[in-house]
């Protein structure tokens, strides 16, 4: 069964590492839906979040092949653990005078933000998981989306269960 997986990687923060990871996917015919990479608090280490899809065998191969790369330090399939996922999206939407109120209401409901205003359009910033972002975009479509820019997903495992019971876990 083909499923979507979110894979988190710790990699050496060196030139060429992104090419190695991306090349592995293209060379072996795996597909990347989104890929995010940035430095961690340790400047020698970067974190990558890759969203990919495949059946169990393909995902197993992807993870094993990633682990074989010398510059990859750690690979975690977050899909199999409890985790949080977020994406930030900028949406430029037509804002005709008769629609402005409705757009603003929707933005408010989704706890999104208007970050740029012009006579004919708004730029909305929204963060959230896949479901929330997908729903928001659907609601904006009837007004006319002029442009869209997405960061791709970033993800993190939730803190271990034990601490959860101590009430330190926040559900966003």
């Amino acid at each position: 069964m083909v499923r979507r997986h979110t894979i988190s990687l710790l990699v050496e923060n060196r030139f060429g590492v992104l090419a190695r990871v991306a090349g592995l996917f293209s060379g072996r015919g795996y597909n990347i839906e989104s890929l995010c990479v940035a430095e961690t608090t340790d400047p020698t280490v970067s974190k990558m979040t890759i969203v990919t899809s495949g059946d169990d065998q393909i995902i197993e191969q992807i993870i094993k092949q990633l682990r074989k790369l010398i510059d990859v330090i750690k690979v975690t399939d977050l899909t199999t653990t409890e985790h949080v996922e977020r994406e930030l999206v900028l949406v430029k939407v037509n804002a005709a005078p008769e629609h402005r109120a409705e757009i603003l209401r929707t933005v408010d409901i989704f706890r999104a933000k208007i970050v740029d205003v012009s006579p004919s359009a708004y730029v909305v910033e929204i963060t959230g998981d896949e479901g929330k972002i997908g729903a928001f975009i659907e609601l904006m479509k009837p007004f006319g989306i002029r442009d869209i820019a997405r960061t791709g997903k970033v993800a993190m495992a939730r803190t271990a269960k034990k601490r959860e019971q101590e009430g330190t876990r926040h559900v966003a």
Partner: peptide, 14 residues
């Protein structure tokens, strides 16, 4: 050559 041989080496260096 590092780019060219990336998929056919175990590892490579510049």
């Amino acid at each position: 050559i590092v780019g060219i041989t990336r998929p056919c080496t175990k590892h490579n260096y510049l």
